[in-house]
Design a protein around this nucleic acid. Structure first.
Ligand SMILES: [Mn+2]
Ligand SMILES: [Mn+2]
Ligand SMILES: [Zn+2]
Ligand SMILES: [Zn+2]
Lengths: 127, 127
DNA sequence: AAATTAAAGCAACTGTGTTGCGATATAATA
DNA sequence: TATTATATCGCAACACAGTTGCTTTAATTT
């Protein structure tokens, strides 16, 4: 484990995430790359990249899967890049938000992981 | 709009949510009621109950749909019962958490709605 | 260059949820 | 109560995101 080949698919995806500020919907990726690779390949490559801590995934309001580049030196055994995600209802873009959300103490509960998904209007659409 | 018939399906569902503290997975509901009604009926009745502000829905980490009873006098045109949801990785139950989560200010963004999904170990499993 | 093994392609499949439509039940009205 | 109107139901077919098994291909090791 830990070996990830620099295959054609991986290079294409890495390049894509490198030049994309917002998150990318898995389905869109499949569509966008349909002439270059099979959808199975897309999904499996995304899996690998996520395992390596290069990208991270989350689920939108409608249950669809999003991917975005990790920016905080995540590794294969630790994703230390936890943050809310924001969907703009105007431009439909989904972004990682570099802020901390504090969860109030919940008596007798052990918190393991928190996913925050915010909808609203982004800065770009707000002028 | 606003008219919801007290049909057999609705009665069964209302009764079910009344006696259930945790949230219910839509798929489980379909399975559990498969001898009493068609799955289409389940989904459509859930839709109606949600429209009426009697139950609310949210999406879990894996993209599956959950439903839970509203407890704060929600109406057909306003769901004023917004709260985090908590999934216990031991007992697998999903609960509504009656706490407030404060989202830090995000410059130039207008926040419309926030969904918080927490995983961990619940009070019941924690002793 | 040959051997090794991860990754790709393809087709078929899984599972959740949706849609169209004719049949039925509920509520309104006469 | 009988009649009419319409919301809801059941069924079958569908949509669609994501997965699996298996064979072939390509990347890395020797
Ligand atoms: Mn992110
Ligand atoms: Mn809830
Ligand atoms: Zn925007
Ligand atoms: Zn528990």
């Amino acid at each position: 484990m830990g070996i990830i080949r620099k295959t054609k698919a991986v290079k294409i995806l890495l390049d894509l995430f490198e030049n994309e500020f917002s998150a990318i919907l898995a389905v869109d990726l499949v569509e966008r790359l349909k002439n270059e690779m099979n959808k199975t390949t897309v999904y499996r490559a995304l899996d690998r990249l996520e395992d390596e801590g290069i990208i991270h995934s989350f689920v939108g309001k409608n249950g669809l899967k999003w991917y975005a580049k990790c920016k905080n030196n995540c590794t294969s055994d630790h994703h230390n890049d936890v943050h809310p995600h924001f969907e703009c209802k105007k431009c439909k873009k989904v972004m990682c938000l570099p802020v901390e959300v504090t969860i109030p103490n919940i008596p007798n509960h052990t918190i393991d992981n928190t996913a925050v998904f915010i909808t609203g209007i982004c800065d770009n659409c707000n002028d």
